[in-house]
Write a protein that binds this DNA or RNA. Structure first.
Length: 257
DNA sequence: AACTGTTGCAACCGCAACTAT
DNA sequence: TATAGTTGCGGTTGCAACAGT
C-alpha cells in the first residue's frame, strides 16, 4: 500500500509514513540483534532511512511480541473507563494494566469509542448525568459480560462456596455472601473475571516450564487458578466474623501505584 | 456509479524527562 | 555542573475504508 503523503524527498532524507513489510522485517531482525535501546543507533545500523523515534514507535505499537491486535474486550473496556476516570489521560500508565495493549491503542479506543458514548449524553447535561452515563456503560458491560460468559456457569459454581464477588477493578475487593434466595442478585459476580483469569494464567505461564506451556487454554486457566487460589484466598478475611456477609482482601490484584 | 461525510487508526509532532559524557 | 543526545508521553494529523445519499 502506497502512502501518498510519504516523504521520499531525497537520498539523505528520512522516510515517513506507513511502514513496508521489508522495513518491518529488517527492524525486527535488528531489534533482535541490538535490543530495544539506542534507537537512533539501531536506525542507522539497520540502514532503514527512518528516525530512531519512528523505529521505536513501530516496534512498540506493532511489531513487539505478545501484542494483542484484536478487539478490545468488555473487561478491557471497563478497565479503561475506570482507570481513565481515576488517572485521566495517562495512557501509558493505563496501558501497563492491560497486557498486550499499547498506549496508542488505548488512547485511540478512548477517543473513538468511549468518549463518543459519553459525549452523546454530555451535551447540555449536568456533570451528574455524565457520571451516571459512565456508570450506565459500566453496568451495561457487566450485564453483557454476564450474558457472554454464561458458558462459565461452571466457574460460577466453583465460586458459590465463597459467596459472590462484587469486585472493584483496582481497589480492595469485597465478597458478598448475602445473595437472595433466587440467587439472582449475584448473576455477574465472579471470583475473578475471565480477564483476571487470563492475567493469572499469563503470570503463571511466565514462570512455568516448557511442559506447562504446551497445555491448552482451559487447562492453563484451570491450572493457574488452582495454583493461585489457595495462596490468593489466604489474603481474604471476613469483615464480619459473626455473619460472614462480607469478605475483604488485603492484597490488590494489580499494583496500582 | 459517483460523490460526500464519517470513522478508525497508524504514525507524526512537540515537549518534558532522563541519561551519558 | 552543563550540555547534548535519547527516550517516553500525550495530543494531533492525515489517510484508507466504510456508510450514506
Amino acid at each position: 500500500m502506497e502512502y501518498q503523503a510519504e516523504a521520499m524527498q531525497g537520498e539523505d532524507q528520512l522516510r515517513k509514513g506507513m511502514w513496508l513489510e521489508e522495513e518491518d522485517e529488517r527492524l525486527v531482525s535488528y531489534v533482535k540483534l541490538m535490543g530495544e535501546k539506542r534507537w537512533d543507533a539501531l536506525a542507522k545500523a539497520s540502514g532503514l532511512r527512518r528516525s530512531g523515534k519512528s523505529c521505536r514507535l513501530r516496534w512498540l505499537n506493532y511489531l513487539r511480541p505478545n501484542l494483542k491486535h484484536g478487539q478490545i474486550s468488555v473487561e478491557e473496556e471497563n478497565i479503561i473507563l475506570q482507570l481513565q476516570e481515576r488517572w485521566g489521560n495517562k495512557w501509558s500508565k493505563i496501558a501497563r494494566r492491560l497486557p498486550g495493549r499499547t498506549d496508542n491503542e488505548i488512547k485511540n479506543y478512548w477517543r473513538t469509542h468511549l468518549r463518543k458514548k459519553l459525549t452523546q449524553v454530555q451535551e447540555g447535561n449536568s456533570k451528574y448525568e455524565l457520571e451516571k452515563a459512565k456508570e450506565d456503560i459500566l453496568f451495561k458491560n457487566k450485564i453483557d459480560e454476564s450474558v457472554s460468559t454464561s458458558d462459565d456457569k461452571k466457574w460460577n459454581g466453583e465460586t458459590d462456596q465463597y459467596g459472590s464477588a462484587d469486585q472493584d477493578l483496582w481497589g480492595s475487593s469485597s465478597w458478598d455472601n448475602s445473595s437472595d434466595a433466587s440467587g439472582v442478585s449475584a448473576d455477574f459476580a465472579l471470583t475473578s473475571s475471565p480477564y483476571e483469569n487470563r492475567l493469572i494464567s499469563d503470570w503463571i505461564s511466565e514462570f512455568s516450564n516448557e511442559q506447562t506451556r504446551e497445555m491448552n487454554y482451559y487447562d492453563e486457566c484451570n491450572s493457574a487458578v488452582f495454583q493461585s487460589e489457595s495462596s490468593y484466598l489466604e489474603n481474604w478475611t471476613p469483615d464480619d466474623h459473626d455473619q460472614c456477609d462480607t469478605w475483604s482482601c488485603s492484597v490488590f490484584l494489580w499494583d496500582m501505584n
